[in-house]
Design a protein around this nucleic acid. Structure first.
Lengths: 322, 322
DNA sequence: TGTAAGTTAGTTATCACTAACAAGAGGAAC
DNA sequence: GTTCCTCTTGTTAGTGATAACTAACTTACA
């Protein structure tokens, strides 16, 4: 018992015995058994973090925000990856909840019925992140992707572009990309426009795919004057293609992506995009789980997607804006 | 007890009671408590995976390999991130070992004395990955970065370049980058050459940094005819700079990076690099931990770093090779 | 000197499971 | 009908820590 007190810094132990315990622990190489500890105390310092993918560039940023805020709380993130599969998400959640974490942070608002039930019954904070267009299980932290799409449409229209194409994933499970497109089309519709062409692809995003799809869509619809990409990676690929093909950017054609990944900062031309506030989302979610921030009364923390002009969109018509 | 048997698929239970248990569990939303289970059985289906960074592009690939192989084993990876800090690594390991995982996979061979002691005493498989230039705690799976650097030097010399510069991180804790440089200089020395210039940077790698450093080194030493970068990301930045600055590649100047990240595949010109065999390393490590492969008798699985010619190095002198 | 209060260390029961063994039911063999 | 076996289910005793309480020892002050 005294050992337990020393190693947890809880309760009063004389300096002498504390020292003895500590040296004994060190010489024996003793590592306390958190399994037993967790069972006895019914408290576990783990936070389950469930995301669709690690190779996406986007999620490492979120994780960075989470672990930065968790760092001084004694809580530890445990990462689970679903590969965008609801069935896998369900398995991962079951597995994680069986360790009785003290909170769950998971991406997206679309979950299987069983997953929702599990989470609702777990009796711990459940923070759904990235996306706020949907019904919360407990609390949402993120941006509206519908709004992000809509705002980008407004900017594009405002800048005078009229013949607009879209290039994006055809992943039925990438709900956020889908919502951006919905919002984008709504935004265009408000200006009396509609998409002139679309090009979809399967699988992961890469510069190469962005190139290929851009070539394809511009071959099919050569008079397009703007391309909206579902993320920065394929947008950057498209940008490289257009530069090489000699398109005058942003006058002959404009381009925009989504995410605001700073990895691509050194490209010859800065791609117009929307910052998805990834790090901030991670931070806020972690603060809630850690109890640093109070739960918002309306179960929602909505951040604003931030437009980043870059160099691939014209200044708005009739403005002197850079 | 019967419930336990049903949910673990262990021992004989009649189909009827199995069914009853299952439906009861489902209606109650019962999630077994792995904490208690682990304590009782002294077995835990977790594998600790400790890596320096998630934003590095490199480690997600390794994790992909690990989780692919662990997928059908019932084992679950638990990821810990050290930010290249030995002190943090020690903390993360302590934390993870206190959950009594059934194996540990960790990047690199450089660890604090305390970390090594903990791992050696844990009584579980410990696989150090990525780097094999060092002393194993238990088993190593990776490539020799010294060799990778040396081989790249040989290729560059063979292609006829003579005035060679290096651009890389100045992170004392990035041992693998350091070893590549050591090997590279050894390789040059064998040909009677030495580095004409070096440019170091701090912090993460990005295209932008690659650009800036390349400009700087070429300003300082304009007659360089080859640049070796410590990774593909800054190499790609350098490539973009050189293209814009109008250098004729690969004749006026050649470039090479390291890693073989396919993210950059769509660049205008393919960067010469070395494939670090990341996915394979993850797979092999996971297979060892899962017991799919027997532990190698010499405690070492050495993979060969693979030269990827790309477009930024000349064909070897006197060869008709592409 | 005695007693209350404050410190420090130790006891006991509990956490939710599983290993190992025990026991009951049913059937087959003799 | 008894014995033996198989199949299924139940019992008991840990598992290694912590919560909550108890005991011993000090100190302070009347």
């Amino acid at each position: 018992m005294t050992v337990s007190r020393v190693l947890r810094n809880r309760g009063d132990v004389s300096a002498a015995t504390r020292e003895k315990v500590l040296t004994a622990a060190k010489t024996l190489g003793y590592v306390p058994n958190k399994i037993a500890g967790g069972l006895a105390s019914q408290r576990v310092n783990l936070v389950a973090v469930v995301i669709p993918s690690l190779s996406n560039l986007v999620f490492p940023d979120v994780l960075g925000g989470i672990s930065a805020e968790l760092d001084d709380t004694g809580l530890q993130p445990v990462i689970g990856v679903t590969n965008y599969s609801p069935a896998r998400e369900e398995m991962v959640l079951y597995e994680m909840l069986s360790w009785r974490p003290s909170g769950v942070i998971l991406a997206g608002v679309e979950h299987s019925k069983a997953s929702r039930a599990m989470l609702a019954n777990a009796g711990i904070p459940v923070i759904e992140i990235m996306d706020i267009d949907g019904e919360a299980i407990d609390t949402l932290v993120g941006i509206s992707h519908i709004r992000a799409g809509r705002e980008m449409a407004a900017r594009i229209v405002e800048a005078g572009y009229r013949r607009i194409g879209f290039v994006g994933t055809h992943m039925p499970e990438d709900h956020r990309a889908r919502k951006r497109l919905v919002g984008f089309e709504e935004g265009l519709a408000e200006a009396g426009l509609q998409l002139e062409a679309r090009e979809y692809y399967q699988g992961g995003s890469s510069l190469l795919k962005g190139r290929e799809l851009t070539e394809r869509i511009l071959t099919r619809a050569p008079d397009l004057d703007f391309l909206y990409y579902s993320n920065d990676m394929i947008g950057a690929g498209g940008l490289l293609y257009c530069l090489e093909a000699g398109y005058e950017i942003p006058n002959r054609i404009g381009l925009a992506g989504f995410n605001g990944v700073d990895l691509l900062d050194g490209l010859p031309v800065r791609l117009t995009t929307t910052d998805a506030r990834r790090v901030e989302i991670g931070r806020r979610a972690a603060r809630l789980v850690a109890g640093k921030d109070a739960m918002p009364p309306d179960r929602l923390i909505a951040l604003a997607p931030t437009f980043i002009p870059g160099d691939t969109i014209r200044a708005p018509a009739g403005s002197a804006r850079n």
